[in-house]
Design a protein around this nucleic acid. Structure first.
Lengths: 193, 193
DNA sequence: TTGCAAGCGGAGGCGTGCCTCCATATAGTG
DNA sequence: CACTATATGGAGGCACGCCTCCGCTTGCAA
């Protein structure tokens, strides 16, 4: 709300959080990650508080709205996803894209956020998407320039294809692998004929 | 549940529904179809009754449980889907499969049912899936035998790929088309190399 | 050790959805 | 037209999730 946001660590020299507060903050984040992954954006906040073993009041102290909590989980994932883009940078073009997309499927909140961003306008969702795009789009472009990814696919298309597929719960990991392979093949250019 | 099911029309000679009852039954079904498509299996029943312009009591008279209502919508879709399989039967193998899958993406309840069937065991879901499989699998097999669909894909794999992609809301129909094309290309065999 | 700002937790008020029950209304029959 | 089996609808009890508020606890600086 105000510009005096104290949720960041002491890095900025602002008054740092008390030790117990920071501990609870982390516990809430972890519980929220699980709950959102399992039940979507509508997960019960009281349930999250219970899982984190803190009172409901503490949850609200740290995250005044559901959106705040979800966004906190989301920005965490965005950061990891951006770092992952660097890590695959040295692979050959297609392998780099494929490896990154395979990571992407694990980040549930990110996928949900993309789905919900259409309805719930949110500055955080928008800037998160900008960051993910900035990280992933060059990988796609590189694969397109090397002639391996189909040139008519936008980054957004690819994310929807790969992300959508993996929204279903998969009981059998082998099946997930098969389906994911098909999806990636859909992104690849069809060699000659 | 019991064998004395009165929800069917008078075809079987059983005591037919009163005219007003049948009218309300249809209105509820239509409202439920919309609501489930928009909000998923968890749509509010009171909201469905409101949309159908009937009292909540009437909803419960016709559909004692949420599951009953959802299943009614679902079996409707399953029937249409099965008929659709016949309609495409004369097309060449690949075109038949593709055409049928393109229809499939419109049947929201069916897709949701597949997703939820893993959790909510239900005889109706199971038998519905059997029917859809019986209708769609031959199309896949035919496309595989003609060498156009990849031989290692199961029917279940294909449904998850195509169905999953289209679980996202798409604002732009052209994008849906692009992504769907990619998904279908993932199902096709990669020609030579 | 002490003082107190920072933090905690959960009771409680509110809203909403679920489902039951039954007084009332009406379609269809003779 | 009159009668009754069939159907209607919504009030009300219950459960649960949201969020606020405030008396109690605790980390930590001096």
């Amino acid at each position: 709300m105000t510009d005096a946001d104290e949720t960041t660590s002491g890095v900025l020299g602002r008054r740092p959080m008390r030790a117990d507060a920071r501990r609870n903050y982390e516990k809430l984040l972890a519980a929220a990650r699980e709950a959102f992954a399992a039940a979507g954006m509508g997960a019960s906040l009281e349930d999250i508080a219970r899982r984190a073993e803190v009172g409901i009041g503490t949850l609200y102290r740290h995250f005044p709205t559901r959106q705040d909590l979800f966004e906190a989980v989301y920005v965490d994932e965005v950061e990891v996803l951006c770092r992952a883009a660097d890590e695959v940078a040295e692979l050959p073009p297609w392998e780099a894209l494929a490896a990154w997309l395979r990571r992407f499927v694990g980040y549930t909140a990110t996928k949900r956020a993309i789905a919900e961003a259409l309805n719930h306008r949110s500055a955080v969702f928008a800037s998160g998407w900008k960051l993910v795009s900035a990280a992933g789009e060059p990988l796609l472009r590189r694969a397109q320039e090397s002639g391996e990814a189909r040139p008519d696919a936008s980054f957004d298309d690819v994310i929807r294809l790969v992300g959508g597929v993996t929204m279903y719960p998969f009981a059998d990991p082998a099946q997930l692998e098969r389906v994911l392979t098909m999806a990636l093949d859909g992104v690849r250019v069809r060699p000659s004929r």
